[in-house]
Nucleic acid binder design. Structure first.
Lengths: 110, 110
DNA sequence: TGCACGCATGTCGAGTTTGACATATTCTGC
DNA sequence: GCAGAATATGTCAAACTCGACATGCGTGCA
């Protein structure tokens, strides 16, 4: 239940592989963060695919641009609930969701 | 963001297929509820498999028996976050999580 | 019958997540 | 370089979720 600075740091500067080999995170915490980052990534992709701005999706999911930015950043203040609901709101199916969870994330810089 | 009576009713008496063809739910609400019920089901299964009581898992995940019961019931007061974290705490992998999301639920009474 | 055990349901104060707003930073074409 | 658009970051009151507790319900069993 502890959500704090640490995660804020990790989420920043995420590279390809697993997050935080360096900070002492329990396996389940690590899984949770990894999952969140994958959902964040999946969300951003879907938005790009549709050529929408953050403000556009914000309208679509009845949220705000700033929250969308936080979602995509995997911010600690964003729940998986919100990410999942937003993906659904953008027309993602459960099967696609499963793929997002399973498939590897892609690094920002190729 | 509206979570209320309706869902409480639907979650109760869940049959095999999709939830609520009868109540007017938007596709994304339906997907969200269906997802929650699948996670709830997956969680219950995993617990049964390990032959643990609700009180046991509650201890394991540092929660309470009542919350575990609500989790398994897909109660509106339970977030997907909590379900996912609990599954991870019970040793579920992301791949298994994806399967739980994809595979069909199983009815209580065969 | 009485009782212990496992599960379900309602409630509540404390803690977390939310949309919104203000503002800063980065990006893009000119 | 500059303006405008897109995105990022900090903050906050309102809304929601949390663990905990009390209590109800069914089942087995002595």
């Amino acid at each position: 239940m502890r959500e704090d600075k640490k995660k804020r740091l990790e989420a920043r500067g995420w590279r390809v592989g697993t997050v935080t080999e360096f900070l002492g995170l329990s396996p389940e915490e690590e899984e949770y963060i990894e999952l969140k980052l994958r959902l964040a990534d999946g969300f951003r992709r879907r938005r790009a695919q549709r050529q929408l701005t953050q403000a556009d999706v914000a309208r679509l999911i009845r949220s705000s641009q700033s929250r969308v930015a936080k979602m995509e950043a995997g911010d600690p203040s964003v729940s998986i609930d919100l990410l999942v609901r937003s993906l659904f709101a953008m027309g993602t199916s459960r099967a696609e969701l499963a793929r997002i969870i399973t498939n590897k994330r892609v690094d920002k810089a190729a």
